[in-house]
Design a protein around this nucleic acid. Sequence first.
DNA 1: TTGTATGCGTTATCAC
DNA 2: GTGATAACGCATACAA
Lengths: 344, 344
Amino acid sequence: MSTVYEVADRAGVSTATVSRVIHGSNLVRPDTRERVLAVIEELGYVPDGSAQGLSRRRKDIIGLAALERGTTEVGIEKTSPLFMDELVHAVESVLRGTECSLLLTFGPAGEPFQRRIRSLSGKVDGLLVAEEVMPPGQLRSLARRIPVVAIAGRRDETELDVVAVDNTAGMRALAAHLIEDHGYRRLGFLAGPADSPDARERLEAFRQAVAGHPGCVLAPVLEGDFSEASGAAAARTLLALRPAPEVVACANDQMAIGVLLQFQGSGVAIPGDMAVTGFDDIYASRVVAPQLTTVGQPFRELGHRAAQRLRARIEDRELPQHTEILPTRCAIRASCGCPAPGSR
Amino acid sequence: MSTVYEVADRAGVSTATVSRVIHGSNLVRPDTRERVLAVIEELGYVPDGSAQGLSRRRKDIIGLAALERGTTEVGIEKTSPLFMDELVHAVESVLRGTECSLLLTFGPAGEPFQRRIRSLSGKVDGLLVAEEVMPPGQLRSLARRIPVVAIAGRRDETELDVVAVDNTAGMRALAAHLIEDHGYRRLGFLAGPADSPDARERLEAFRQAVAGHPGCVLAPVLEGDFSEASGAAAARTLLALRPAPEVVACANDQMAIGVLLQFQGSGVAIPGDMAVTGFDDIYASRVVAPQLTTVGQPFRELGHRAAQRLRARIEDRELPQHTEILPTRCAIRASCGCPAPGSR
DNA sequence: TTGTATGCGTTATCAC
DNA sequence: GTGATAACGCATACAA
């Protein structure tokens, strides 16, 4: 593996000049540049990232740490966090235009994963942290060491930047649609894991919306882990329940899809016998039949903002703390009981 | 940001000892270790990855470069490469058990992306390269600089490791099912982009299978770009075609889903009026109605093998070149005309 | 316009 | 057991 020294040697210049050529400095004579470039080409030289990082005190790498839910618990390959995938692409697409690269790590909540994130923090200039991968205290201590932006974390954070979506408004709008437009009175809810701030917000918003409409009752409230399998399990519970709710709102799309497919498999018509809704608006939600009514998260925007904020903070660590809440958008489709559009 | 020096100072030891403690060497007295550990904890010290990388001559980072198809061409957010997402998780899950992290980069085929990969090669110990992100010659020159494993690339590679799936067997089995079990005689095919080795193999296998059955005709053969939108576009073409094929086999699931939804939106019953099949077996294919008949790729296995092979080659760069073809598995579901299973 | 010399934070090879 | 000290490959301040 060749180094600046070799390049410098062969080109008959100093390493400083090589460095200048590489970084496109214009304080170098055209013919010198040509010579150096030729040698670089010939040797297939690529600067070593570690050395650059050490010298320039910046690695041009940012990390993304996210929870992987319910992947290895039950079977071997349950379903991956589609939500995260969308986010990853959004973040990556921001970085694409820059020198920066994306270091990815997933893991189940817990002590080992937290340790991994800590050690990973030595390899990056900043960290995007999704959901609640670690307790607030630890997260803050991490944020003191290195720039951190929380995605979809606690909104009440005062020591680090957070970018999140407006779960409350979205869920409230959805509930209003179910109650006011469809006239549902008995509403069930399939909540997400209690350790997810998003999950808690969604449940709370739905609860309040129902409470705000006299005559409406919220029952039952089940809990899943955001996986499709947990949705299917909830559906089986619901199947045995009397009286059954008219609609079951789910805290994310994957669970909603699990509910939907399990119901259909058991001969329950959706939305005829029971309406179902989700949250997130992942790709698959547009693909199931009936198409899922859900609340759209601005993934792209979420990833963009978080990445940009992190880059800004890496530039200037004294930036004032900032919390940004992005709007959500109700996506009314067919699973709530609305007529399916003529063509998709 | 604290360094080994600070830790050494405060603990009243040398940097060498700190390093020993960090790496769990047992040539250090227990009480010394305790003292050092306490300081590390107090300072929140985490070793700098660049410095480590420079000194140890290994960065403990591997890269994954993949094509992002049809993302920004037409609209803003078309559909992301679901196939890749599955792969990413598979690779990441291997690395999770190690010290190694995953550096991710996506991009559209082309010169700029190739440059990005080159510069990225300075930040990693090895590279996983999916599909044909760069011309063979360039790929080989890259592989001379740094360990490279190609995923789903050309099978005829002799200078670098490749891990791929058996497109031919899978597609052949699927074709046999369509022709022999269902008795279809007029078969259409929606091919993938010509620059994808997988796409070419799948088309070729299907073509041969049809040719091997007298009386069967392959028509039409359309070409898409692996995106759902291109599937929908193909469906519109097919709609206007006389005679129409009895079945249209697609080179991947996303296109098949595009075809399926577009047909259904136009009042064509699937599989009643026309059968549709895919390839990959992504999450969404189990979620559409009717469930998609497709050929399953062993994503998990693909990612595992590729990651392990790369790690092995990083350890020993003299390893003999190796090409590994993983088996595919026909997933017969309902979109081909088979009866839907009672429950999903 | 170009070269010299030093520092970046670790690890590892020696001595002690 | 522990401590100096020399790499590691690059960037840059300062000279020339």
